[in-house]
């Protein structure tokens, strides 16, 4: 499996403790880039600016990515634009919130 896909799989294990749903299904992960030296750059957001859990979720994402074989360096960038919206959630996440 290519490294980008492995990183995405790892991020499925990072659960938002308030909602009990992983950050990929929540639509919080915007972009996963892996360069030629296997450095990983992830761009992600949170459901709202000022989420009290933002440090925990970012460090959780970093930990999970570092756990993927062959990954060199990891940089998780938290952005507010474009802002998160419910349309970014997977149908599975939407069902869980019903």
């Amino acid at each position: 499996m290519e490294l980008t896909k492995q990183v995405e799989e790892a991020l499925y294990q990072v659960i938002d403790p308030e909602l009990g749903i992983n950050i990929v299904d929540l639509g919080l992960v915007y972009k996963i880039d892996v360069n030629e030296t296997n450095d990983v750059h992830v761009q992600m957001t949170l459901t709202t600016p000022g989420c009290p859990l933002h440090d925990s979720i970012v460090s959780g994402a970093e930990t999970m990515i570092y756990g993927v074989d062959d990954v060199n360096d990891v940089h998780v960038e938290l952005v507010w634009h474009p802002a998160w919206s419910p349309e970014k959630m997977s149908s599975r996440a939407k069902e869980m919130l019903m």
Binding site: Q13, V14, I15, P17, E18, P52, L53, D55, S56, I57, S59, G60, A61, E62, T63, M64, G67
Partner: peptide, 14 residues
Amino acid sequence: FLWWTHKYSGSVGK
């Protein structure tokens, strides 16, 4: 929130 952050924040993913 407070207690979770203190106790489990560093354990996410571990």
